[in-house]
């Protein structure tokens, strides 16, 4: 029951309260670039969610089994060359950034090949923004958040397992999708408006994004209230 509550809190927090786009301001590039039409925005949101989930899964697996001190594979290989106690202390977390970029780039390439074969129209609409997911800080941000929950805690029971990591990734991607679809809906309406010449294009988009971020601030404190409502009352 506690575990389910934790999953629920991570999901709500990742999707609405600490929305990746409006709270942490990561993933702005595809957010501004592909939010011209709702159907394309939905496609991009789906692609980012999918890549985030795959990347989070691989990041979690590699971090837990290879990189953290006490990881099984590292400990086993290390015990061949040094006493077991020392092997359990080998810390490879310096590799996290490089490994995460490997994994993210690989999964984005995979998704790009898949989309190009099975949905050419979506592929052409993405244009350069699909490979830009590789350098998109939203994916790397999700992976690093997961890593910090695996590494940076003293209490072993607080270490995030696969369930919590995937929940953050999927619902974080869902939050990104919500953000980009809202933006696309607004921008479709903006196309019909009379905007002063200095504001046309990127400036009005950024202003609208700022107003949306202000609106999403309304969710702050909802997690504490929800936790109290579900477990206390």
């Amino acid at each position: 029951m506690d575990y389910a509550l934790d999953i629920f809190m991570i999901a709500v927090s990742g999707m609405l309260i600490n929305n990746f786009v409006f709270y942490y301001f990561v993933g702005i590039c595809p957010f501004i670039g592909v939010s011209r039409r709702v159907d394309m925005a939905l496609g991009m949101g789906g692609a980012v969610t999918f890549v985030m989930s795959i990347a989070a899964f691989m990041a979690w697996a590699i971090t837990t089994f290879l990189l953290v001190p006490g990881a099984p594979i590292t400990r086993w290989v290390g015990s061949l060359f040094m006493p077991a106690a020392a092997a359990a202390r080998i810390d490879l977390t310096i590799l996290t950034y490089i490994v995460y970029i490997f994994v993210i780039a690989g999964s984005v390439q995979f998704v790009e090949m898949y989309v190009r074969k099975f949905n050419p129209r979506l592929y052409r609409s993405f244009g350069v923004f699909l490979p830009l997911i590789t350098t998109n800080c939203a994916i790397l941000f999700a992976c690093l958040t997961i890593m910090s929950h695996i590494v940076g805690v003293e209490n072993p029971s607080e270490i995030w397992g696969l369930g919590k990591s995937l929940t953050l990734a999927v619902f974080g991607g869902g939050g990104f999708t919500i953000a980009i679809v809202i933006m696309a809906g607004i921008r479709e309406e903006l196309d019909l408006c009379d905007i002063p010449v200095p504001f046309r294009g990127a400036p009005i988009t950024l202003i609208v994004a700022g107003i949306l971020a202000l609106a999403f601030m309304g969710f702050a404190g909802v997690d504490a209230g929800l936790r109290q409502a579900i477990s206390g009352g």
Partner: peptide, 22 residues
Amino acid sequence: WVTIGLSAASLLSIAIVLTTVL
């Protein structure tokens, strides 16, 4: 040296796996 060797080996093996899949 074990740590350095392990880092190199793990990066290399991840690269090989990814290359094969792609």
